[in-house]
């Protein structure tokens, strides 16, 4: 692939990709750890997730700053411009994913204080699916692979189905015994957070498609209406 004549610009873009990757892998780890803190009843890990989120926030700020600097100083065009605008949007999704992992960890810390509920196998499947979506969206970004990103967008149906099954299972537990309500509600929140993580992965994947192909695939049903 041709490189930029301006080596400093080339380096800026390289740094941007590296920083996004570092942030992405940190966020992936936060999700995994937050889920482990629940399944392994490991409250130390839960605390670590809460602390690590500060670094994700710092990365978001640094990436935004780098993007603004590149926009101001380099006037990027074409694929460079699409990379920068994609970066500016996906850092927000990554940061939100980090926040959701923190929320999951918080709920886990609470749940770990009480005896475990009868196991809900769908929860670990939902957690795996959400992590997998984030991982595949980030891989699609790294490899600038629009086909892989499209697969992520399609993959959201599984997450939604798992979420609804889990929701009903937890409702059932609540109806069986009112002592379950507090814990089942926490698990419902966790399920919702995982489902939201999946939505953010979709956002990332949609931006990857835009970055690679230059076509905006978001909100297909809103197409054809022009803003006033």
């Amino acid at each position: 692939m041709a490189t930029h004549t301006d080596k400093a610009f080339e380096k800026d873009l390289h740094d941007l990709r590296e920083q996004l990757l570092a942030m992405g892998s940190r966020v992936e780890k936060l999700i995994a750890d937050s889920v482990l803190s629940l399944s392994d009843r490991d409250s130390k890990l839960g605390e670590a997730v809460r602390k690590a989120d500060a670094e994700v926030n710092r990365q978001e700020i640094a990436i935004d700053e780098l993007c603004r600097r590149i926009l101001a100083l380099r006037q990027p065009a074409a694929s460079d411009l699409r990379l920068i605008t994609t970066a500016l949007k996906i850092v927000t999704d990554l940061e939100r994913i980090g926040d959701l992992a923190v929320n999951i960890a918080g709920r886990s810390l609470d749940l770990n204080q009480a005896p475990p509920l009868p196991s809900a196998p769908e929860l670990s499947r939902l957690a795996d699916a959400a992590q997998n979506q984030v991982k595949r969206a980030l891989d699609a970004f790294v490899h600038a692979d629009a086909t892989a990103a499209e697969a992520v967008v399609q993959g959201d149906d599984l997450l939604d189905a798992l979420y609804h099954t889990l929701f009903n299972d937890l409702l059932g537990l609540m109806m069986e015994d009112s002592k379950n309500i507090r814990r089942a509600t926490s698990l419902m929140f966790i399920a919702k957070h995982l489902e939201r993580i999946g939505d953010h992965a979709i956002n990332v994947a949609e931006m990857v498609i835009y970055m690679v192909k230059g076509t905006d695939v978001r909100h297909p049903r809103s197409r054809g209406k022009r803003p006033n």
Binding site: T3, T5, F9, A77, A78
Partner: peptide, 19 residues
């Protein structure tokens, strides 16, 4: 042309990848 050119040579030129 400045956001999503079709041709690689255009892309290289507008992004400063020539020469």
């Amino acid at each position: 042309m400045f956001t999503n050119p079709r041709e690689k040579r255009t892309e290289d030129y507008v992004t400063g990848k020539f020469g």
